[in-house]
């Protein structure tokens, strides 16, 4: 091999000059694409500002009114009366916590109902997603027809917002938590099914081939080759979905599908007083607690994975 002469200068078919030519061409292409993307982004931003009329003067006029509303719904607590109980006549003293949260027992019953709705919907949705996700994975689907059908079905499930499903079910089966549970379960099945099938598509196919090699059928390939690999991820996604479903089930009550949402809707539209903040505060505390709890459980699962 001849030593490399740095001062030799470019030669027409030299590897370096071919590479440099190729590189500059690639950079030119990239630059063009980048300018195109930035232009498209700015256009979309301008359009959305125009459509939503997000103008500074409107914002300036609207903001004080937001605070005004919060002013009307803030509880009128008095420090010296804060822990005052009910009087001899059974009436709570205005300015005390008891007066503010006079419907506390109702709220708690509804919060518990909301959490159980989310739990049931998550279990139903995750089960459906588990059954759907294998035929909806490109690497596992027995044929393209089943693959396309299960994919489209999951898209319909998650494409429609929970609140719309809830509305339909309230008409179909009546007011109450069942309508909300079904609505959230259907949406969860679609959303989780997509996440599950993406996990499946990243699974190693070697165990699957091993099971196929011993004469296992499709179900056995899934059960032994795929499920053990993907289960920790499935559990983690399901817990995340449970958090989302607690939020969702406190909303579906607005259309009569059970949970704390019905009460929130009632106090906002009928009273607009300190009861709104009373309910909101409970919802926020509940959601935060559930988030913290399931976060703990999720890291427990993932942590166990990393230890191995």
């Amino acid at each position: 091999m001849a030593s490399i002469d740095v001062n030799a200068g470019p030669q027409p078919n030299d590897a370096v000059s071919v590479f440099e030519h190729h590189r500059s061409e690639l950079r030119r292409q990239r630059l063009g694409m980048n300018i195109l993307f930035i232009g498209a982004f700015l256009l979309a931003l301008g359009l959305s500002i125009w459509v939503s009329r997000f103008y500074p003067d409107r914002l300036a006029a609207g903001l004080p009114r937001i605070f005004e509303y919060f002013g009307t719904i803030m509880p009128n607590l008095q420090f010296d009366l804060l822990f005052e109980g009910r009087g001899a006549d059974g009436r709570a003293v205005p300015g005390s916590l008891t007066f503010w949260y006079s419907d506390f027992n109702v709220y708690i019953r509804l919060i518990v109902e909301t959490i159980f709705m989310a739990l049931t919907a998550t279990i139903l949705g995750a089960t459906a997603a588990f059954l759907l996700c294998f035929p909806a994975s490109r690497n596992l689907a027995p044929n393209s027809f089943i693959y396309i059908v299960s994919r489209r079905f999951m898209e319909i499930c998650r494409g429609v917002p929970e609140i719309l499903y809830a509305l339909v079910f309230v008409f179909a089966i009546g007011i109450g938590p069942l309508a909300g549970v079904l609505a959230i379960a259907i949406h969860s099945a679609g959303a989780l099914g997509k996440l599950f099938s993406e996990v499946n598509e990243n699974a190693s196919m070697r165990p699957v081939e091993g099971i196929r090699g011993v004469g296992g059928n499709w179900f056995e390939e899934i059960r032994y080759g795929v499920v053990p690999q993907v289960m920790p991820n499935f559990v983690s996604y399901t817990l995340l979905r449970f958090e989302i479903n607690v939020r969702a089930s406190s909303i579906v009550g607005f259309v009569g599908a059970g949970g704390i949402g019905a009460e929130l809707n009632r106090v906002i539209s009928l009273y607009s007083d300190d009861r709104v903040v009373a309910v909101l505060l409970l919802v926020v505390i509940t959601v935060t607690l559930i988030d913290l709890l399931s976060e703990q459980m999720r890291t427990h699962f993932i942590g166990r994975e990393n230890l191995q």
């Binding site: 070697r206 165990p207 081939e209 091993g210 011993v214 004469g215 296992g216 080759g225 053990p228 289960m231």
Partner: peptide, 30 residues
């Protein structure tokens, strides 16, 4: 036929997250 005609792979193709015994028992799946 696949059950009668066992295959040993270069990359072993075991199910890593199952125990050894269950992996061997998968040989009985047919």
């Amino acid at each position: 036929w696949r059950a009668n005609c066992a295959m040993v792979f270069q990359q072993f193709n075991l199910v890593g997250r199952l125990n050894v015994l269950t992996n061997v028992l998968t040989g009985r799946l047919y």
